[in-house]
Design a protein around this nucleic acid. Structure first.
Lengths: 190, 190
DNA sequence: ATCAGCATGTAAGGCGTTACATGATTCA
DNA sequence: TGAATCATGTAACGCCTTACATGCTGAT
């Protein structure tokens, strides 16, 4: 009930660095933070519209094309850049300073594991293998990011990105450790 | 769009062990698997009703009270036990065997960290401290569970529960390790 | 020429939360 | 007597996903 759309904060946070289009925002989410947050066009565009109405973001005036004497429209899909307003910055800071957080985790993998008693052990082992494969792939990418970022840690802006990636590496390595243990225990009990 | 209500599987999984009321189901979720899955009454009761209509679960005939000559109703809130049907078991197994899983993680803590550049470092350090406090509390409980369960690992039914708890312990310990690292890096850059 | 990627948006509908309504029983 | 816990359910509403609609641009 309480207005709680976190996607708003993601957008404001990204816009606090640079002006972006809705499409850009989607790419930033997918490439940078997708391992702990997701967002779809169906949530981004409506959020941008709502926040513009609330004065938290503003459409950037596109540069006037000099060699056009007619109406500036007529083009189909044109980029719309958004910027964060002062009110938007205040809203972002208020959220950052609010100590209330909800970390909402839904591991379907663990759910399947928890109810593994209803099927043959091989089914559960397959679930673990699939999970492990995904984790290995993601972990490699995260490690690349981490290595790259560790070289520019002196620049303050990169520290926060580095720390989230580092979080990913730590948890994913814990996942792998657990996968090995789980496989051992399940095999032992055969 | 595709019918994908995971709460159904949680309920079917729990009912595959024993007959339960909606209230019991809520308690099982809260006490046993809340660190990787959540469920509210507002989702449990409608799911039970829908699954009963679909023949996946059935209302258990409550035992007839012997010393009641009148209509068996008249009592206000009476427990309603549900059992899993054969169709329900099939549905549960089909889900367990389906290799498609989605682990949906939303860490608001990491989101706040990622955008920490917009506020003073002390704010971000506070976010980390709060997170760490929660993790420590939960970890202690998980460790108790793990110790208790490790003693009954020979009984097959406990293995799956043990493994999910073990997952929790591994990841929570990784969280703590990360908290220490994060604090160090943030302080260093002051 | 056609496909992938760029780009913005809407529509339908599922899923889930919070708050509310109701009432019994147990315990301090 | 009053609070907490047990117990079932509904109502309102918010958030998000998926699929669809539309069309440009650049590379193969």
């Amino acid at each position: 009930m309480a207005k709680d759309r976190k996607i708003d904060m993601v957008i404001l946070g990204l816009l606090s660095h640079e002006n972006l289009t809705g499409y850009d925002i989607k790419k930033r989410i997918d490439n940078g933070i997708s391992f702990f947050w997701k967002g779809s066009f169906g949530s981004i565009y409506p959020a941008l519209a709502a926040m513009e109405a609330d004065g938290l973001v503003a459409k950037e005036q596109p540069l006037q094309k000099e060699n056009s004497d007619e109406t500036p429209a007529q083009s189909g899909r044109e980029k719309i850049y958004y910027s964060i307003t002062e009110a938007g910055k205040k809203s972002l800071v208020a959220w950052l300073e609010d100590s209330k957080v909800t970390n909402d985790l839904k591991y379907e993998t663990l759910l399947k594991l928890f109810f593994g008693g209803a099927v043959d052990e091989s089914v559960t082992l397959k679930t673990i293998d699939d999970f492990e494969k995904d984790v290995r792939t993601s972990l490699e990418i995260l490690k690349l990011y981490k290595a790259r970022l560790s070289k520019v840690l002196n620049e303050r802006e990169h520290v926060y990105y580095y720390l989230t990636v580092s979080f990913g590496v730590e948890t994913y390595e814990a996942y792998l450790k657990w996968c090995a243990e789980a496989r051992k225990i399940l095999s032992r009990n055969k």
